[in-house]
Structures are given as C-alpha cells and as structure tokens.
Design a protein around this nucleic acid. Structure first.
Lengths: 203, 203
DNA sequence: GAATTCATGTAACTTGTTACATGATTTA
DNA sequence: TAAATCATGTAACAAGTTACATGAATTC
C-alpha cells in the first residue's frame, strides 16, 4: 500500500494537518493515488502509533484548532526503506468499470455505446487540458517549497498522465468511428433484408 | 462495483462454477478488472441470496463435486439495468504505486530509478506482446461460444489495453532518456566543481 | 517425488467508501 | 440566506488481500 508512504513523503516537505494533506493530495498525488479524508486521518493515527510521525496541537481563535503532524526520523527511515524496496512486479492491477461495460455492450444499442464513448471522450479531453496547464506551475511550486530538484520527478509523473490521456482520447475517437462504421454496415444489411421482404410480398 | 455484474455477464455465456469463473476472468476481464478466487465465491453467495443466480451440484467421481451457477431471469434483468445506467463520471480513480515512488524519487540515486524504469519497460513490452497475440483468438473464441457479435466489443477493450501499453512504453523510454541526460548534466557539474577544488589545492 | 490442476470454501485482516456529527467564518 | 471553507474526527459497511484447510489425480 502506498498511502502511508505518500503521507510520509508529503510530510517531508513541511508539517501538515490531515486537512492540509488532503488539499495537497488532491492537487498532486491524487492523479495516481486517491485518498479520502477519512482514510488520511486513519492513517495518521496509525503512523503516529508506529512513531513515524508526531503531532502538536496549534490553538486557533477563529478557526478549529489544528493538529499538525510532523515526520520523525523513524518515519524518514521507513520512507527511505520503502523507496529502496521496489516491488517485484511494477504493474498495479487495473479497475476500469467502463471497460467492463463495453465488454458486455452487445446488450446495448450501438447508439447508446457511442453516446457514452462521446461522453468519455469529452471528460478525458478536459482532463488533458487541466493536466497540460499544470506543467508550467510545477517548477514554480517546487521553488516555493525550496525543493527545486523535485520538479524533475513530478514532471515525469505528469508526463505519464498526459501520455495515457492522449492514448485514451485517440482510442475513444477510433472506437466511435468503428461504431459508426458498424452502424452503417448493420443498417445496410437491414435495408437489404427489407428489400427482399418487399419483393416477396409484391409477388 | 463491477464484480457482481461481471460475474452475471460471464454467466450469460454459459453456467459455470466459481472455479470456472476465475479461469475465464483471468483470461479476459482480468485485463481491466481483477478478482480473487475468494471474492468470486463470496459474490456468488451474495448473488444467490439476491436470487440473481441459482446453483446445482454436479457429482463427480474422480474430482471434487462441482457447484454450477446459472444466471436467473432476475439476474439478467439486473445485468441489463446496470448496463443501461452508466455512471455520471466515466473515469475510475487510478492507483499506480510506481508513480507514487517516482514522485518521491529525488531520495534515490538516478541510476536506481533508471534501473526500475528499465524493469518496468520490459514488463510492459512483454505484456504488449501477449496482448497482441490475443487479438487473433478473440474471433475464434466468440464463435466457439456461439456469440460471434461479442468479438466486436471484446476487440474494443483489447485495443484500449494495447493503446495504453504503447503509451506507457513510449513514456518509459523517454523517461529513461531524460534520466540519462540528467546524469550527464550532473556529472559535468561535478567535474567542474572538482576542477575548481583541484586548482584551489594546487595553489 | 514435487508441483500443478481441479474444486470447494472459511477466516482474518486491510483498505476503500459513505454517512454522520459539530460549528464558526467567510464568500457568493 | 445558502453554500463553501476550515478542521476535527467516528462508525458502519463494502471490497480487496492473504492465509488456511482439504484431498485426489495428474503431470513433470
């Protein structure tokens, strides 16, 4: 599982509350590993139990008090150890509901499948646009954190996201075309069948 | 969740045991939705409880008895209903441990990251090869099941897998090149620094 | 003689998801 | 005045993972 180590990694940038972590997650790691707020709080408790983070409460007047977590040296060691031990198999299992649906889509009208793929295509196009706008900000953000070297690695992950999105967009476009071809093909067969029926009744 | 509906879908092809289902899963749906044997048994019990499948036990002499599950008409209705209700958002959240690791890879030597990416590249190349060999078999397999029309939809899912693999391969190759460039760049900076130190000690 | 296949699961544990609860402050 | 932001979580449930248990037959 990557979540505890992703949290440890983010805490090396600066101490944060669970709430902060969720914000940072949503604008970075979220592109390749999602986490719910409740999961983050749960993991922070577990990490504190193991001594990988510690916390102190910052009192606030106009806002709820903040419980700020900081990585400990044991936590840094654990993170380092995890990073050095890559898993034997590098590919994570996929879970793509859309493909399960397409696999059984012979039970749907072609027009419906086409409509859904068009919807998918638009979703991915807008996601690509937002990904591409991030590129410019990565360098600036790394400098802001006083970690300019991070930008190189963050860019590698961003490029992966963009590459996959482009591949999916191309696939969706081609699939829509194939569906249209199949629609024409099936319509033709039907009109031929109708002709024959027509001839039969004419006789 | 797609698992119960994937099971219902596969049972429309023919009645199967939990063991059979796992085999079929591993050579089809597994490419976009994985399931453990224990999950399949658990889901089959749940589906039977809801009346979406029923079962009968086939006694065998030399092998353990088989518990063969069959989709009911309620199950077919449920499958159909699920297929007709596409989710509002078509994109499933990603979980890619490799990218989490790369995100924090400034803590590793560049050579180590390069090595891991080379490993990843080889994995994906062999996966691509096996995907490409499946294409020829899909048509034959659909005919074997007496469902030639399915081949069109199965091919759409296969093409998606191939498209993503190719994108990942290209990304890995480009990333490896960028790492090599960075290695050269950093080596050059170091040798300059060493020169200066050398000059300083000479004086 | 060891590993794989066939075939059933159960149990324990870990993760992920959704809903609930609180409550002031700020923005639209 | 309604919604979003800040900030904490807990509880319950759903799904995913790993380990255990059984045992004959077949393949290497």
């Amino acid at each position: 599982m990557s979540l505890p180590h992703a949290i440890l990694g983010l805490l090396t940038y600066r101490p944060m509350t669970g709430y902060d972590l969720k914000q940072v997650f949503d604008s970075s790691i979220n592109y390749f590993w999602t986490a719910h707020q409740s999961q983050i709080y749960r993991e922070l408790s577990a990490l504190e139990g193991k001594g990988y983070v510690d916390s102190r409460i910052e009192l606030q007047e106009k806002r709820p008090d903040r419980k700020v977590y900081r990585i400990t040296s044991e936590g840094e060691q654990e993170l380092q150890h995890w990073l050095e031990q890559f898993p034997a198999v590098l590919t994570t299992p996929v879970r793509e509901e859309l493909l399960v649906r397409i696999f059984f889509a012979s039970r749907l009208p072609l027009s419906e499948l086409k409509f859904q793929l068009q919807r998918f295509l638009r979703e991915r196009q807008s996601s690509l646009a937002s990904h591409e706008s991030i590129g410019d900000m990565i360098g600036a953000y790394a400098k802001l954190l006083d970690r300019p070297d991070e930008a190189f690695y963050w860019m590698l992950t961003l490029k992966r996201g963009i590459a996959n999105l482009k591949a999916e967009i191309r696939w969706a476009e081609e699939s829509i075309e194939e569906i249209e071809e199949r629609e024409r093909c099936l319509a033709e067969q039907e009109s031929k069948a109708a002709d024959q029926t027509g001839n039969a009744t004419e006789r």
